[in-house]
Each structure stands twice: as structure tokens, then as C-alpha cells.
Design a protein around this nucleic acid. Structure first.
Length: 432
RNA sequence: GACCCGUUCGUCUAUCGGUUAGGACUCCAGGUUUUCAUCCUGGCAAGAAGGGUUCGACUCCCUUACGGGUCGCCA
């Protein structure tokens, strides 16, 4: 029996990071077991569904790299994959329930009569959980068909999971209390239930429920905030799941290899934006300079910085200095323009440095040198410093600030090489 | 309120009765880098509380506290 999992979002908003992780776990589980991953759009709430939301979810899935084997734009033997187009199927199941005498009218709506007995679920993450359905006050019979004729979530969700032959349902813990309802429905339909795995929710840093507007909540925000897809996938996988080793940085392929439902935690995890950025930095360090250059390009252009002919060298100089792609423009502006804003504090500090007085001498030496290279330039710093009884290291800070306008940045040799002789000389001379 | 689930450094986590309770992020201190960053080393920092069970409990049981979830003709 091959594994079949699904992600079943309703297109009523953007793709939430919690939803993204649910999709990821279903996808990982399917890929790990050479199974099938299905995307199903649960658009039964006509009033709240929007085309923008549907698109945002698809975009988010694509960006995260979670491809589906069956679903919208892909097809498959169990379509259509939009619930709004599956009404005949639901009608047929509704008739079954009616024939089994499990439904009764309440106004124009239909309610499902629960079996009044304890229901025990065997959750792959939560273990055995029993809800006593003899307590009617806590478990009132549920509506399956509204008075307007439409079906509710519980019913269509169960029917589709059965129809689409799901073997494993991995979903957020907010669905744990729904599961006995689904089990009852499945039993009444005379079918076998899939295996369930309820994963803990993702909370804000302060422990509150993560929702709209909270930092990190929308998957769609990550690309423009300068995150790499692989880093975000890596980070959210670590929220509630552990590889049981000291390793933390994984590619999607490595995650497939290591993933298991048994390793999912029970307690909700808080979202740590700082660590997410650190993971991003780790991923930036791992990709090639070419790949990094391509990813950074849109951010550079967005700040109206020129893509110079030595762009590759410029990008290489800052690759391991940034945590987010959004930091790239500010890290390279002084290398590609002469109008970059300066860090006034660093400039003031450098000008107050006694060794700043040696900058004109250094400029002269660089200007008069017959050979120009980054290595020669660095050597010149040592020579000028020595000639005036100073150490090379002490002269480097003023030089750095004179050339870049800030206290931190690329290696001085990279700066010399990228800026070239003329600009270096000019910036050293004008720094006073 | 009722019903579920949970509780190890500030955060993410390892530990499946016997460990100096380990790793990572953050922060601090050194070192490497003649500079910046990377990197390396070290440091700060945890079993919610109280009862049991046991030779021995973070680990098993109970109670309390706290946190989260659910109680719709939303999904």
C-alpha cells in the first residue's frame, strides 16, 4: 500500500507559515516513502474564498519547492481537486448516510447523529486519545448539510479523504478534537479511516497564537524579506521536529532522508526570527557565488544600484557578510556608486584616529606606484605605517572607512581590487 | 466554564530509570584574520511545583499551577 498524503488549504487568506509547515510535513512524508502528495483546495465557503488567496497558496507552495503529484494544474485520477466542483460526489455520500438512518433534519439543515460511545483515536504523534461521546453536552450532533444545501467542512473533508484514498492525514493540532467526528462519519460510511498525525502549532515569540500581521506569519513575505526558500523550509522543519542529531542545516533532500513522524514533538514551538535569519545565512554560505549573485540581483536593482561589469566580484566580496538578501544593496553600494551614504559615526571615529593623517601619504604611494594590485596596495599600507612608526593594523581602520564610509565590510583587498587604483587614491585624498 | 493536549537553558531541542543533563540561536570573553566578516575556543543559562512508585526519576503515576487547542449551519 503506497503512502498518499495531502495538503488541503482553504483559499481564504495568504499561506500561513503553519500551513506551509503542514504542507511540508505531508510532502516530506510522501517523498520519503515514495508515495503520492496531493493538493486539494477546500473552497466550500463561497463567501470567503478569493482568487488572490488561491494564487498566494500556489505561489507559496511553489516557492517552498513543494510540488504535488495530483491536484489543480496537475490533474489526477481523483479529480476535480476543488471541493466546489465535487458536489455530485458529496450528494452520493449524503444519500448513504441518509439510507443508514444517521441523518435528521434540523430546520432546513441536516445533522449527523453521533454514536453515543467513547471514541478512541490512535494518533501517530499524540498517541491514544479518547473523547467520550456519551457526553452529549460536549459533543452535540453536527450539521453536515446547511440549510442552503451546501455541505460543511467535516463532511466534505472526510468524503474527499476517503475518495482520494488518503493513507495518512497530517494536520495541525487544531484539528485534534475534530478527529473523533471524522472517525464517526467514516464508520457510518462503512469505510476505513486513514492514519492521523496531529502536529503542534507554531506560536509567536511571546507564546501567543501566531496570526496575520505577526512577523514571519506569511510565507509570501519571506522572498521579499530576503530569505532563501531552502532556508525557510529548513527552519520551519525544525519547529516541532528534530533530526535527533546535532545537525541543523539541511537541504530539502536531506530532510526527506531524515524525516519521520515519530520525531515530531508534542509541544507547540515558538517562532524565533533571529534563528531563522541565522539558518538563512548558513544556506547562503552553502550555495555557489553564481547562485547567490542571481538571487541577490533583484534586490540590488530594486535599490537602483547598477549591475556593474564586475558584479560577480562585488557579490563574492559580500557573500559571507550578509544574513538576508535584503542586506546586499547596503553592503555593496559603496563599491558600485560614488554616492553611497556614509556611516557618520564611523567616519567621525576614523577622522579622529591619529593614523588618519597618514592617508595622504598612502594615497601618494598608491598613485606613484608603477604596479597596481590589491596585494601591492595592502603592502603599501604596511610600508606607510612603518615609515611613520605605526602598525599596519592601526592604519587599516581609517583606510577602510575612507574607502567604504563604514566600519564594517568586505576584506580590504577585495575593496582595493574592486574599486581600482583611481578611486582608491581619490577617496583616500578626499578623506579629511 | 467543559473537554482534550502539553510543560528540559530566554528561544529551538537531545535524553526513551543510573549523564558533570548534550547541541544550536542570542548574549559575553578570548583567539585566528596585519582590516571586516567567516571561523575556532571558552562562558552565562534548564528539568514548573508538590506528592508518590523505585536502590535510584527530567524520564513512570497522581495533584496543582501555567501554556496551547477545541467547544459554529468557518475551515
Amino acid at each position: 500500500m503506497t503512502v498518499r498524503t495531502r495538503f488541503a488549504p482553504s483559499p481564504t487568506g495568504y499561506l500561513h507559515v503553519g500551513g506551509g509547515r503542514t504542507a511540508l510535513f505531508n510532502w516530506l512524508f510522501a517523498r520519503k516513502h515514495k508515495g503520492t502528495f496531493i493538493l486539494r483546495v477546500e473552497d466550500t465557503d463561497a463567501a470567503r474564498n478569493t482568487e488572490e488567496a488561491r494564487q498566494a497558496i500556489f505561489d507559496g507552495m511553489n516557492w517552498l519547492g513543494l510540488d504535488w503529484d495530483e491536484g489543480p494544474e496537475k490533474g489526477g485520477p481523483h479529480g476535480p481537486y476543488y471541493q466546489s466542483r465535487r458536489n455530485e460526489i458529496y450528494d452520493a455520500y449524503f444519500e448513504k448516510l441518509l439510507a443508514a438512518d444517521r441523518l435528521y433534519k434540523d430546520g432546513d439543515a441536516y445533522r449527523f447523529r453521533f454514536d453515543r460511545k467513547p471514541i478512541t483515536m490512535h494518533d501517530l504523534v499524540c498517541g491514544e486519545v479518547t473523547i467520550d461521546y456519551r457526553d452529549e453536552s460536549n459533543t452535540p450532533d453536527m450539521v453536515v448539510k446547511r440549510s442552503d444545501g451546501s455541505y460543511v467542512f467535516h463532511f466534505v473533508n472526510v468524503v474527499d479523504d476517503l475518495e482520494m484514498e488518503m493513507t495518512h492525514v497530517i494536520r495541525g493540532e487544531d484539528h485534534l478534537m475534530n478527529t473523533p467526528k471524522h472517525l464517526q462519519l467514516i464508520e457510518a460510511l462503512g469505510a476505513q479511516p486513514p492514519q492521523y498525525a496531529h502536529i503542534p502549532l507554531i506560536l509567536n515569540p511571546d507564546g501567543s497564537k501566531m496570526s496575520k500581521r505577526d512577523v514571519g506569519a506569511a510565507v509570501g513575505d519571506y522572498p521579499r524579506q530576503g530569505f532563501l526558500s531552502g532556508a525557510v523550509v529548513n527552519f520551519i522543519a525544525l519547529l516541532g521536529w528534530s533530526s535527533k542529531s546535532d545537525d541543523e542545516i539541511f537541504t530539502l533532500t536531506e530532510l526527506i532522508d531524515r524525516f519521520s513522524l515519530e520525531a515530531i514533538n508534542r509541544a507547540p514551538a515558538r517562532f524565533d526570527y533571529e534563528k531563522c535569519k541565522w539558518v538563512n545565512q548558513q544556506h547562503i554560505a552553502k550555495i555557489s557565488t553564481e547562485a547567490f549573485a542571481d538571487l541577490a540581483k533583484p534586490f540590488v536593482e530594486a535599490e537602483n544600484l547598477p549591475i556593474t561589469e564586475n558584479y560577480a566580484a562585488v557579490i563574492a566580496a559580500v557573500k559571507e557578510k550578509v544574513r538576508l538578501l535584503t542586506e546586499v544593496p547596503a553592503a555593496i553600494d559603496f563599491l558600485v556608486t560614488d554616492t553611497a551614504t556614509q556611516d557618520e559615526e564611523a567616519v567621525a571615529k576614523a577622522k579622529a584616529n591619529p593614523n588618519a593623517a597618514l592617508l595622504p601619504a598612502l594615497a601618494d604611494q598608491l598613485a606613484n606606484g608603477t604596479e597596481w594590485s590589491a596585494e601591492k596596495a595592502k603592502e603599501a599600507i604596511g610600508e606607510v605605517a612603518a615609515a611613520h612608526g605605526a602598525k599596519a593594523g592601526q592604519l587599516m581602520f581609517p583606510v577602510r572607512v575612507a574607502l567604504s564610509g563604514r566600519a564594517h565590510g568586505p576584506d580590504l583587498g577585495d575593496i582595493f581590487a574592486i574599486l581600482g587604483k583611481e578611486k582608491c587614491v581619490a577617496r583616500l585624498r578626499s578623506f579629511h
